[in-house]
Design a protein around this nucleic acid. Sequence first.
DNA 1: TACTTTTGGTAAATCCTTTTAGCAAAATCC
DNA 2: GGATTTTGCTAAAAGGATTTACCAAAAGTA
Lengths: 342, 342
Amino acid sequence: MAKKKTSIKDIARSLGISITTVSFILNGKAKEKRISEELTLKVEAYIKEVGYKPSHLAQSLRLGKSKVIVFMVEDISNQFFASIARKIEERAYKNGYKIIYCSTDNDPEKAKALIDTFKVRSVDGFIITPTPALESTVVELIEEEFAVLLFDRWIPSIDCSYVVVENEISAFEATTHLIQNGCKNIGFIIVESDQMQMIDRLKGYGNAVESHGLQKNVFMLPFHTISESVAINKIQEYIQNNNDLDGLFFATNYLAFEGLQALNNLKKRIPEDLLVVSFDDHYFFTLFQPNISAIEQPLESIAEKLMEGMLMLLEDDEKSKQDFKVVLPNILHVRESSDFKK
Amino acid sequence: MAKKKTSIKDIARSLGISITTVSFILNGKAKEKRISEELTLKVEAYIKEVGYKPSHLAQSLRLGKSKVIVFMVEDISNQFFASIARKIEERAYKNGYKIIYCSTDNDPEKAKALIDTFKVRSVDGFIITPTPALESTVVELIEEEFAVLLFDRWIPSIDCSYVVVENEISAFEATTHLIQNGCKNIGFIIVESDQMQMIDRLKGYGNAVESHGLQKNVFMLPFHTISESVAINKIQEYIQNNNDLDGLFFATNYLAFEGLQALNNLKKRIPEDLLVVSFDDHYFFTLFQPNISAIEQPLESIAEKLMEGMLMLLEDDEKSKQDFKVVLPNILHVRESSDFKK
DNA sequence: TACTTTTGGTAAATCCTTTTAGCAAAATCC
DNA sequence: GGATTTTGCTAAAAGGATTTACCAAAAGTA
């Protein structure tokens, strides 16, 4: 097996013509550049025969475009991000793009370091779930004319394209749903964070509760929650200390999983003792007994918009680069955990 | 903001020296190439000052190495693969490698097409969960001197490095565990597949059952199981038609999730009516009531071995390239679903 | 002094493309 | 028939690095 790949030069030499001619033909510019049809066919046949494929590296170097998109998320092993990864993959490949992933752990230093290495690699675009304190880095990226698209959360202080969901509206809706089903004291369990999606969910919950004349009751776990078992314990304590809770709204599915463990440990019955609803739907919620009500983010639409936006940012040279701003609606699935009738 | 990045040429010009000198200094060859310390320091200071970073593209083109590894799995959104992705990521980045992922859906044509595009991209290595009929493509890759490492399943007919787990042994162990806890008629639920890991799991089950003088009772779902609900129905039918089952062993966690739904629909109690154990542990299994016994694959070790092997294949030029063959042991977690005492 | 060795560096080729500018021959025009 | 246009194709630069081969000047040796 030949280790050495055939290059455009080899082809030119073998056929006794110039590199330029071969390149024109390869790039479909034969007509435009007035290469005779006879020669064109001959070259094309030869290319097919030897199975020549141009080197992407050389092309990238020459054209200044690498056809690589970075997918930078908090944690690629998180089901939500992994699902999006899967769905944008198809679309990217179809358009000749490859995707490099990386996880930030929501650590600004790590995120910055990663972005730095990728700049050097001359990637074309970035799809980012921003960590805190990433404003200036993102602004820099945009100024250096990379295609940048935020998702899951956006950064209010800067002008940058994004794809997010209606966090506030859906949290409002889910809370209202609990109230309509009789809850008077709904605990909202959230992780301490300045991420916009969390802030918005909290806001939606708060507005719904207050607009019905009820009291807010928020339990905030520290962000770097030491471990899962500690988190479970803390939630358990919270529930015990608030014995009159009749509803629980979890801000993410991971919190819900921990919360369900806590409720189970406390022998609390759902929905008899309290109603439960969670943000971020999950396969488990329909497997769990009782089924858990949840707000589903539209993964398919998110992925679709993400690639639509990214391709637009990548291809259009002239249009304003910061105007792809999409907010998608979620779907509230009412299940047994929040509805006696089910 | 400057769009144009500074190149080694700019540095040379600014300092009135040659490109060669700058390159030597950049690559730590100043001493070896007898560049004076004075000049070396001056250049290094200047490089730091302007924040110069060499272009990876140009380096890759010149050196024929791109420092990119392809992580090609069946489905990146599958929790198992996503977890491995996360764990190899750290190690790869630490060694200056980036990871491009892609999903094959276990479709040979798709896999071949993906491999083809990546060859062109001059990636350095491939970590692959092989689809069926991929032997020749993999052999080609090896012959073309790419670093190739199979995982999850390997291909018996070819000589290629791999990292897998003890599928047969663990299946034997889990089956034996069920038998020891009183099962006389264990149903093994598996998906139709010629993947080695499935064949081995089936073998382990069969050996265990037969060595205890019991009958095999295998239910095989067609591979492209139309949909989840259809799968649930089929499993449900199977259980109904085999009313004397007292144990169920699921070959993967996805089958277990479907099976648990089926059991729930049939109002079967675990472990009172039958014992349950599954291959591939999952967060859910400890959340589910009762907790489900499962065989945990050692994700951390798999990832570690994967990168250890890949780096070895990438760096060593001389050593034999096919001799990194690792088989890792799993851990059987006995939980409530297969043990009355728990 | 004359010759060798060391020191400190550089020119140019190479990796593989794309693309601009241009050249000779053939065809067209008046 | 001479000027212009068209046809068909190519030389060479550029993109940004690495590396081989080599060259002066300084230092060492006899």
